[in-house]
Design a protein around this nucleic acid. Sequence first.
DNA 1: AACGTGTACGGAGGCAGCATCCGTTTTGAT
DNA 2: ATCAAAACGGATGCTGCCTCCGTACACGTT
Lengths: 197, 197
Amino acid sequence: MSAGEQRARKPRADVQRNRAALLETAQRHFLQHGVGTSLEAVAKEAGVGPGTLYRHFPTREALLAAVLQTRSEELVARQADIEQLGDPAEALEQWLRAMEEYFSAFSGLPDPLMAAARAQEPDNPLTIPCHILITATDQYVRAAQLAGRVRASVRGHDLFLAACSVAWIKGTGTEEEPLDRLRTLIASGYRQQDPQA
Amino acid sequence: MSAGEQRARKPRADVQRNRAALLETAQRHFLQHGVGTSLEAVAKEAGVGPGTLYRHFPTREALLAAVLQTRSEELVARQADIEQLGDPAEALEQWLRAMEEYFSAFSGLPDPLMAAARAQEPDNPLTIPCHILITATDQYVRAAQLAGRVRASVRGHDLFLAACSVAWIKGTGTEEEPLDRLRTLIASGYRQQDPQA
DNA sequence: AACGTGTACGGAGGCAGCATCCGTTTTGAT
DNA sequence: ATCAAAACGGATGCTGCCTCCGTACACGTT
């Protein structure tokens, strides 16, 4: 028996039930009140004690990461659509928008995201998703560069930062119009002007 | 006497002393711990009770605005230097950097700044400084546009947002190198390419 | 120099949120 | 039916926010 490392006992029913209730409630609260919402309130509304919440999700980031899991998968799913676009410049554009939407899922999300992205803290549960995003962005950038549609000096990381910025500004309550102008400004910054003059 | 509306009595000595001590201490704490620092700690270290702090500065923003006063004046002073540059494109560039430094004075500063900029809350003591900055930026932008050095579609407000973003990212602890690439990206976004091809 | 008044002080106190710890309950296995 | 492990949950201690009000002090007056 020591050889089989799975074969733990079946996960308890209440554990799954509580976890699901917590995730569901947490998502609602993050949506309504931003990432800074009261965890105590989440626990209470989910019908569990604070201890249970903290046992399932030791930190706010852990809860956040778990709630974001669904959305991460949506993002991955979108990649398939994007990649069969053919046009790498268009693909990059759409990818950036998709990422921005992901960052804007909850108000205040960009802050913990940046903290995780910067981090050599492998214990931060948001770190891995962040690095995945940066790497993915870099690939779209390289493809568009090979097609001569993006300046050579641009890196994926730069556009990750840019998308994060836009999401941050969005989260502060700025209207869509100035946001759109900012997006345009950034796009003008990374796009390669056509060689035809 | 009802006609003269000034002519209150001379301001008390302890008031001035406490105010000065609070500002000095608050600045240190904002520098070391960011804008979210404990006001209770500030009061204690300044040698006053919490009540005194809140009487002088009813909100965190009020304290912040008062502490920023000095730096605002430095910014205005810089404008003189900048304006006698002659080159409007260079002037804009320097102005943006000056603004960015101002926004980066304390970690976390961009958040209350954005909240104030968006606001029709005239009671927010940061609102006025923000609008002054936006207006000033717009003037530099217009000047550079007249010289054909900046795209026509750009507005001062856009670059205000951009500078704020960069400062925000800086405040999250990102290193200088990616920051510089982001600045370059943004600059490429607003600059008008020379008509000579 | 002493006084009186009004202004400012400051700390106690109520509240909210975080995070932990441990006695009790629930759950699945035997 | 019984048992041990696992999970629960709330009481608890802590930090920080902000207010309220009895007290002390500074200033103008006599």
